[in-house]
Design a protein around this nucleic acid. Structure first.
Lengths: 183, 183
DNA sequence: AAGTTTGTTAAAAATATATTTAACGTTCAA
DNA sequence: TTGAACGTTAAATATATTTTTAACAAACTT
């Protein structure tokens, strides 16, 4: 009987491990280190964890857990919680994938839009100088204009990205694409 | 006078380089190798390029260009074109960022949804076995149910991801978020 | 105040990834 | 049918990233 229980316990672990493997694999692709990916996936099935529990569970070094958990906090997939009576820090995983999606991609896209728009603005200023420069030959002016227009066109995309971010942040996107669509 | 021209030419290169740097930097974050990122960003300002031109322009080895261009083709950011009269292969960069966005993220999200859903289905089957098993103790059944429900809940997210992919692929998302919104 | 416990930082080791050099196979041209 | 041009593959090198071990600093306990 207690052996049957052992089997059930093992089956549960097996079930969890399948999902942990899949989650960690996809997170890997998101530029998260293997340690952090495995950690998050493990925490996904836990109420909360301390650094020592992480180390024991994943059989990895404490500094590795420390840096991993910090990276996960940066992308808001893990939060610190206060546990009274314990000196150890405790952490909980964000279990709402919608929120993780929002934080991760919005952060990424916002940065992309900002970085590239800044570069584009500067570049366009340079190009305008060339275009306005009376000593530039016609074909140089033509070339400068061509690039200017190409950059101007690309701004449409970055503005759209910013709109997308805004609609995700505000939750408006779920009016268009409901979360719980009956399949 | 020809010196003035030289200056204008340099200013154009400078302008391009600013944008090339920004594009390459963001692509880096997308899990593309530096060589591929620089290559795409360079091609963004060219009509078309051959492997030898790439090598010359980026001052890198030919195999590096070869593998980079192949990776870029996989994510459909570069396409091969036929140029009559030349034995060399010629490639052009996808200059429509909306299309790049679509291909890259839809590919990624679809894969994520598929991988994780498969794992979830398998895990849920295991958990059901445990729940139905008459020899399982009540607390084990409770635990199995808890995980089952958690996984069931997470499916909502993956379905939503699939819906998002579909609406991007079909272009329906642009009805909700128009490309050219006056700022 | 001395000794633990806890977490982080810094240097070292291990590992993985990216790039190059060298060798190869194919196709075309003479 | 020989040789050159072109592109790819394979092995070697270089580089970057990840993880660990060791040392440290802060906070708490006794």
């Amino acid at each position: 009987m207690s052996e049957q229980n052992e089997q059930s316990r093992m089956k549960i672990e097996e079930a969890k491990d399948k999902v942990i493997g899949a989650i960690a694999e996809t997170m890997d692709l998101y530029g998260v280190t293997p340690a952090a990916a495995n950690l998050y996936a493990t925490m996904y099935f836990k109420e909360q964890m301390t650094l020592d529990e992480m180390r024991t569970e994943l059989e990895m070094s404490k500094p590795s857990m420390s840096t991993s958990v910090r990276k996960l906090q940066e992308i808001e997939m893990v939060k610190k919680t206060f546990t009274r009576g314990s000196r150890k820090h405790t952490y909980i995983a964000e279990k709402n994938f919608f929120r993780s999606f929002m934080v991760f991609y919005c952060q990424m896209w916002e940065r992309e839009a900002k970085t590239n728009m800044e570069a584009i603005e500067e570049a366009q200023e340079d190009l305008i100088e060339v275009i306005k420069d009376s000593s530039s030959t016609p074909d140089i002016v033509t070339e400068a204009k061509k690039y200017y227009d190409q950059l101007e066109e690309s701004k449409v995309y970055y503005h759209w990205l910013e709109d997308l971010v805004a609609s995700i942040r505000s939750g408006k996107i779920f009016e268009f694409l409901p979360k719980d669509q009956q399949k």
